[in-house]
Structure formats: structure tokens, C-alpha cells
Nucleic acid binder design. Structure first.
Lengths: 248, 248
DNA sequence: CGAACTGTTGACATTATTCAACCTCCGTGG
DNA sequence: CCACGGAGGTTGAATAATGTCAACAGTTCG
């Protein structure tokens, strides 16, 4: 399980783990210096709320380590997760005063924050930041639309398989392994969080995970440690055409 | 029903109907001139496909008049609409060679197109375009996330009410009326298209429209002409908290 | 006139939800 | 040290919601 703290995270942008993927990815060294002047780190424990929807938000940030979620809640309590924030993902919206979603740390979380005002000014003068942000936002839009297909049209079983495949792919990517053959990873989400992401109830999630296990698509060690003996088999269960180019 | 053709659409950017909302909204007159040099119009009849997912796409475009849809299709034919393109909305993605979704004209459609290469170059040198595109993409991302809540957590009845409320709001906005009290508008979508948008079957759509009619939330004149005697009542049926700030 | 398209409705099947019981693990306070 | 409670998870039975299949009605367009 990821267990980073401030000590293990360099404060030098130069060797930041998300240097090449985050909103600062395209910055030249002089631009990076200006960012470095306004940045600061914040860390949160697993389970902590980062921001509540509707709250005033005076910063934007990049996830450095850990995982956070974006969720929307209806008056009667129905919840839908609308984003999973992984290292390098961007939080907040330039030009908006309040948060549109609840942001919650699901693992211990470190974020690289920028006060909104200076960041917005920097965006004006530094096209590389705006360019990268546009690129990232377009990617997120694609991911959101992929998720719309899942929510609108996939069966519970396909939804679970899709989520597992996405996490497996991302995990393989982080470990610099290819998403092929046998894969092993830890689920960063509880059954309830999975349900909130997939538009299901936690009971249905539990049942379908059990079903995939019963059918040999996955193996479980404890509740969170997943073994995928054959990744292609898992992908077949997602309903996507084989190559399925999800959110990396 | 909207029935525009090229004759009725000015070719002067200056009095273009989407001048103040489209990707060119922030451009100064000199920037506009450069855009004007590379732009050209295309029109499509209702029902025509603009682009197929996976096709090479050598242009980006703004919807000038009419309505188009963005849909994704699974191998076995399940379809999910992932976007509704209204006048001023942007089509295509700078930096991507092929279309990610099927784009279809649901009404007669006029688009203002830019060849991708020159547009991308212009984006580099014209921060106002990139800025506006970022803003629009962020708005679309919010709309997509709002839609994820609908797809994942709303009942069929709430889905229908939400769709009607969105169309009613947008329509009131176009006609410069306020979305209050009694509203009248035409549905731009067939029952099947509504189903594809809402993640339902067309039968369920038909049944729930009938139910809303039976309960006096809406009245029908023919199949497409909708009368909403009390907009607040409709909004109550959406499950959203009263102000619900959807996609404009 | 007939075919094709759009829409409605009914009967029935399926899927996922709801409600409830129960299990394991873990930390804490008596 | 262990009993207790809570959090996370599983499973079963009943139920509600939506999908499927099918018949049919109204329009439009050759």
C-alpha cells in the first residue's frame, strides 16, 4: 500500500515524481522556477475530506502521491463518483471560486498546491501551462465519456471487470510493466467506493466480484489483493473491443 | 423546426450567430481575420452522419446552427450518447488524428470548419483561442460529470425529467426568455435518441414520458411538442436540488 | 396503397436493489 | 487479556425497476 509522507517527497520540482505528467510537464526551467515559488505541499490521511462541494476553494493542485476521488451527492444521499484522481491529476478549476464536487483522499495523499490567484496569473503569461492543462482536460473529458458508456450501458459484471481492468492497467503502467498475462495489484477502493464509482450498490459489487472469482477471472487474497491470471480474459469480460484505450 | 441553410448564415464572422460563445469568442478583430481565412462551412441534413468513430478527421469545427450528437457504440450494438452538440459547441480535438465518437446531425446542421493543421498553428500563436477552448472544455467536463450522476444514480423518471428540463432551459435561453412558469418547446430528439442519451430503452422512455403526461407534469401536442405548465414542478421531478446548474 | 419509420402499450423476463442476517478483522477500554 | 463495537465484506430472499418481445397505431413518402 502506498505510504508516502512529506519526508519522502522531494520539494525540488526537478526530481518530482509527476514532473513529466502533471500540469507543469511542459514547463521550461525558468517557468518551473516561477511555479516553484508559489507552490506548497499539503498532505491528507486516508479517509480525510480535502474539500466539500460548494466550499470556497482558494487553490488548485496536482496529486503527487496517493489517490483521491471526486463525488457528487444528491439531496437524498445517492452518491456518484465522477472522477478518480491519480498521481499527476489536476484538482480545481481556474476561474472558479468554489468546489463543484467533494474531494476525498482514499489513500494517504500528498498534493502540490498553488494559490489560485498567482496560478491564474502565471497561466496568462505561461502558455505551456495552459497548453498542458487543455491537453489534460481533454483527456479527462474522454475518460468521463468512456465512463458514461459504462454507467449507461454496461451490466454489473462488465462494470466490475472494466474497473478492475483500468486499475490493473494503471498499476502496470506505474510499475513500468506491460498489462499482459498475469497481473497482481491492490484495490485502492472499498466495495462501497467501487459501487459509487460504478453506479451500483455495494451488495451488487460484492456479488459480482465473487462471481468473477468463482469463474476464475480473478483470484482474491484477502479482500483487496487481486490476482488476474489472464488479463485478456478480464478484458473480454469488460464488453469493450479488445484494445480499449481507457485512461492510461 | 430549425431549417437553416447556407444562404441564411452570414459568412462574416462579425455577425455570426455564435460569435460571442464559440471557440472564437475571445478573438480580437485581427485574430478573427486570420480565422476567417481558414474557415469554411459545411452543412448536413437531419439524420446524416458527420463523422464515424475511428475515421481520419482533418478538421475541427463549431456548430453554427442545428444539433448534433456524439455517440459511442459497443461491439454488440449497445449505444450511449456522450454529448449533445448545440450551436457554438466545438467538435474535434486538436492534436488527435481520428474521431473518437460518431457525430450525427439530428437536425439540419451547419458547421464552421477549420482545417486542423492551420487551426493548431493558429492556436499556438493566438492564446485567446486556446484560452477559450480550455474554458469550453472545462464546461463540457462539468456537463459530462453531471451526466454521470444522471446515468449512475437517477431513476428512469428522473432521467426523463432532467433531459426535458435541460432542453427547456437551453431553449428558453436561446429565446431570451427565463426558464420559469410555463414553457413550450420542441423535442429535437426521437425516443430512441433520448434513450441513447439517458441509458434507457426507447420503451422505457415512452412509458415515462406518458407517465409524466398522465401526472400533469408535461402536456404533449403531437409527439415532439412539449408544454411544461409549471417548470418548478418539472425540476422537482429531476431529483436535483432546486437551482441545479446544468449545461446552460 | 403499402412500406418504413416513429411511437405506444401490454405481458413477461431479467437484473439489480433492498432488507436482513451474519462473518471477520481490528482497535479500544474495562 | 478479552469482550465489545464498528467497519468492511458476503450472502440470501423478496421486491422493485427496467428490459425484452411483440402487437399495433399514426404519419410520411414513394
Amino acid at each position: 500500500m502506498a505510504h508516502h509522507d512529506l519526508q519522502t517527497v522531494s520539494h525540488e520540482c526537478g526530481d518530482c515524481p509527476i514532473r513529466h505528467r502533471a500540469v507543469c510537464a511542459r514547463c521550461e526551467s525558468d517557468e518551473l522556477q516561477r511555479l516553484e515559488q508559489i507552490k506548497y505541499y499539503r498532505s491528507y490521511q486516508a479517509g480525510q475530506t480535502v474539500i466539500w462541494s460548494g466550499d470556497r476553494m482558494d487553490f488548485v493542485a496536482s496529486v503527487v502521491t496517493g489517490i483521491a476521488t471526486l463525488t457528487q451527492t444528491m439531496e437524498d444521499g445517492r452518491r456518484q463518483m465522477v472522477g478518480l484522481l491519480l498521481p499527476s491529476d489536476f484538482v480545481g478549476r481556474p476561474g472558479r471560486a468554489t468546489a463543484a464536487y467533494d474531494v476525498t483522499a482514499t489513500t494517504d495523499l500528498v498534493m502540490c498546491c498553488f494559490r489560485k490567484k498567482p496560478f491564474e496569473e502565471l497561466m496568462q503569461s505561461t502558455p505551456h501551462i495552459a497548453q498542458r492543462l487543455l491537453e489534460m482536460t481533454l483527456d479527462e473529458l474522454d475518460a468521463a465519456r468512456e465512463w458514461m458508456l459504462l454507467l449507461g450501458r454496461k451490466t454489473a459484471r462488465e462494470k466490475i471487470a472494466s474497473l478492475l481492468a483500468i486499475i490493473a492497467r494503471r498499476d502496470a503502467h506505474l510499475k513500468l510493466k506491460s498489462a499482459k498475462g498475469s497481473i497482481v495489484f491492490d484495490l485502492p477502493l472499498t466495495r462501497e467506493e467501487m459501487a459509487d464509482y460504478l453506479g451500483l450498490t455495494l451488495e451488487t459489487v460484492s456479488r459480482q466480484v465473487s462471481a468473477l472469482k468463482r469463474d476464475g477471472v480473478i483470484e482474491l487474497e484477502g479482500k483487496r489483493h487481486i490476482i488476474v491470471p489472464n488479463f485478456d480474459r478480464l478484458v473480454e469480460e469488460t464488453g469493450d473491443d479488445s484494445d480499449g484505450g481507457f485512461l492510461v
